[in-house]
């Protein structure tokens, strides 16, 4: 595997505010890498530095093992915050400027193709200022795809899209990832990261507080919900039971953390043998959301 992006001790301060504190990240080819964090956690700051619009206070990064060279960005398709285009130009005219900057061959053909991908072909000759928010966002994605780049950098890519648009963009990202492209996504939407990413770093106040593959964060702990007539007895029994702990007591049922090797049958059998009949027993997939909330708790 080759390294697409390496970030070393990257920091950015605005006066006394530390927006990003010694971030270290390594993105390998083919990863769909998520940067997850609440608003103001340093996601956009990180991407801004990586894309040359913010000057880092300290630290280094390297794209494609070639350092911080400006021309690296020609091989990166990016969507950073809001879509930025000339309002008085049409989609095609705007994309021509991007194509010129990225030195793309067969410009018209590529423009047709990406506009088709984001379903904007019918409006290709409309001025950007006449577009709806969703269309603007789709044009920005078309622009990011224009050079058929090795790497896509997307900051909140489904912002402002309706549910159908969100689903389309997600499928598009998964589709692109299939071709072995590397994708970097910043988002505060957990399900977005969960659904498309292979790896994730969680940022909080500029500090990376967790970094791993999505599977090990979400799949790390199995959870089950159980309820019974006599919950107090269930609680007592669980204290003696090896491999399960109560996480919380909610509405007459208990949420349990359960060891990987146990399945519902084991749990059911254990309680039955101890004289308790469960009225409810179900598996819960521990979502990134609960993990995220737990990790980012004060």
């Amino acid at each position: 595997m080759s390294t697409i992006l390496e970030i070393n001790n990257l920091s950015k301060t605005y006066g006394t505010i530390i927006a990003l504190n010694r971030l270290n990240v390594k993105v390998e080819k083919g990863m769909v890498f998520g940067i997850l964090g609440p608003n103001g956690s340093g996601k956009t700051t990180t991407l801004g530095i990586l894309l040359g619009v913010l000057n880092p206070t300290a630290g280094k990064f390297s794209w494609f093992g070639k350092g911080q060279d400006d021309s690296n960005r020609k091989h990166i398709g990016s969507l950073l915050e809001t879509p930025n285009f000339y309002p008085y130009l049409t989609a095609v005219q705007n994309l021509r400027i991007v194509a010129k900057i990225k030195e793309i061959d067969r410009i018209d053909e590529r423009i047709e193709s990406v506009l088709k991908t984001v379903s904007l072909l019918e409006r290709k000759d409309s001025k950007f200022k006449t577009y709806s928010l969703g269309m603007k966002q789709r044009l920005a994605i078309a622009s990011a795809l224009l050079s058929d780049p090795e790497v896509l950098v997307l900051d909140e890519p489904t912002n402002g899209l309706d549910p159908q648009g969100i689903a389309e963009i997600r499928n598009l990202i998964l589709e692109i990832a299939k071709y072995g492209k590397t994708i970097l996504i910043a988002s505060h939407q957990l399900d977005e990261i969960e659904k498309v990413c292979t790896d994730v770093v969680i940022l909080k106040k500029g500090v990376a507080i967790a970094q791993s593959d999505v599977e090990s964060i979400t799949g790390g702990a199995k959870q089950m919900v159980v309820s019974a007539e006599n919950l107090d007895k269930v609680k007592l029994l669980i204290d003696d039971f090896e491999g399960a702990d109560v996480v919380e007591h909610q509405n007459g049922s208990l949420l349990l953390n359960v060891k990987e090797n146990l399945n519902p049958a084991d749990i059911n059998k254990f309680f039955f043998e101890n004289g308790v009949v469960l009225t409810e027993l179900r598996m819960v997939k521990r979502s990134l959301e609960s993990q995220f909330l737990e990790i980012t708790k004060e």
Binding site: G52, N84, Y86, S143
Partner: peptide, 21 residues
């Protein structure tokens, strides 16, 4: 001012131009 206001100057850089260019 247009290039600053529309943030297109920023976009030009993101797309691959250097600030100097």
């Amino acid at each position: 001012c247009n290039d600053i206001e529309f943030k297109t100057q920023r976009q030009n850089i993101i797309d691959g131009l250097s600030r100097k260019q």
